[in-house]
Design a protein around this nucleic acid. Structure first.
Lengths: 252, 252
DNA sequence: AAGTGGTCTAGACCACGCT
DNA sequence: GCGTGGTCTAGACCACTTG
């Protein structure tokens, strides 16, 4: 039942921990171990290769950072799922995008309420200093596993059309549509970042795991900003697909 | 001349190495140290806080992975630049995209030649088993610092319009345009990955650093695949803007 | 030659989860 | 209780750059 551990060289210019990492990666990538399978323990691997536990940890840490393994304190290292494809940019709702990707996911409200706006947010949403913003924090999960964090802010004129208690069942976009607010365009950004201590547990990730962060400022049919959304996608679980057509600028 | 190192608690639930990391991050983020500045050495920091070198390394390693610092063997740790904004999707050439972003960058050819195609590539570019593909590997750099790796494959009918010796001066897109080949649309993907040993030195990155990988299959005006491009952007140096009417944002 | 980061060993204690 | 991963110490040797 124990996984077959491929041999390593122990010579050459490659550091030991990278040789061990490659060996373990082979086991994971070749599908010899399916999702959820447990890896041999640190000390087992160390004994098998005759190296110190520190070397094995360096190898395993990298695989965790790369999202191939998940470490569970006191339990072991476990093999992860492969990636989900999402379409970018998405003017559609998250739930819809996930449905298109063939993943049964649900968004659950974690926090909501009105808050004072930071100067930057106030500027983006064209809110006055006196106005407070409605903030909504949700976690998207599939199979009970958190995948994405969605944090949204709405100016008062939009927020008044949102029924906080009905979000989980009705979604926000549907409520806004019913109120006559329709998204027309968006300004988006995408970057790679790393989760901080306060955010990490919400995504079930260790501190410092990479995430794909998107920021979207959406405008309604009258070109007024209607929402600002920040989404944190687990970098190990997503691929973004996008297209382009020939309405580009002329080449030099 | 030595940087002021903020104090740490040494108590509470936070691990030591995260306290040290936060302290160092403060120094970097507050702009107390400009781009290129050298951090105190590992042993200096360890002595200052009265912790082992291992703890300091854990802190520094994270900052390196997150792209805030660069480690140079035998020299020290150095503070990095902030990020560059690129527009996504870019049917335009890389050079043009960088120029738009306000960065003086140049693409340099590293490898080129015809090669046998993998089955996957052959399928994408609709090449026959007998056909060989023209492969072009370039590195994009600014200020002598490598930022992106661009690997492109062309089917024979396209490759015959490319003058390999003139790429550095003329660019590929300009040559193809002169030959009557114009990109009309593209299928793109974006994901986060981590550099392997063979690639890492080309980007001047340590093994395992995160990169944003885009794959683009471009079609010409007759909807025939004309090139397949894989680009590896240093995750610590880029932000991608996308969406209709995406505006330029100033560099932070 | 001195100083720096990169790798590795051997050991310790703790917090956590579970056959 | 025992095995697991998480943190930390003390020390060693090597490879690299030149602060």
């Amino acid at each position: 039942m124990s996984a077959e551990l491929p041999p390593i060289d122990r010579i050459g210019d490659h550091p030991l921990y990278l040789q061990v990492k490659s060996a373990l990666q082979t086991v994971v990538d070749d599908g010899a171990l399916p999702h959820g399978a447990r890896m041999p323990s640190e000390s087992t691997i160390a004994g098998h290769y005759g190296v110190s536990r520190h070397v094995v940890r360096q190898a395993l840490e990298r695989l965790v950072t790369e999202g191939r393994l998940t470490a569970r304190h006191g339990a072991g290292y476990f093999v992860n799922h492969r990636r989900i494809h999402l379409v970018l940019p998405s003017l559609t709702s998250f739930s819809e995008a996930m449905r298109t990707a063939g993943v049964a996911a649900e968004l659950r409200v974690v926090e909501q309420g009105t808050e004072e706006a930071t100067p930057e947010l106030r500027h983006k949403l064209r809110a006055t200093r006196a106005q407070r913003l409605y903030r909504l924090l949700r976690v998207g999960a599939a199979d009970g596993e958190p995948l994405v964090l969605v944090e949204a802010w709405y100016p008062p004129r939009v927020a008044k059309s949102i029924d906080g208690a009905a979000i989980d069942s009705c979604g926000v976009y549907r409520q806004l549509k019913a109120a006559g607010l329709r998204p027309s365009r968006a300004e988006n950004q995408l970057r790679v970042s790393f989760v901080d201590p306060p955010v990490a547990p919400l995504l079930g990730l260790p501190w410092g795991s990479p995430v794909i962060v998107t920021n979207s400022l959406t405008f309604d049919q009258d070109d007024r900003p209607m929402e600002y959304v920040r989404e944190l996608y687990r970098a190990d679980r997503f691929v973004f697909d996008y297209g382009s057509n020939s309405e580009r600028r002329p080449q030099p």
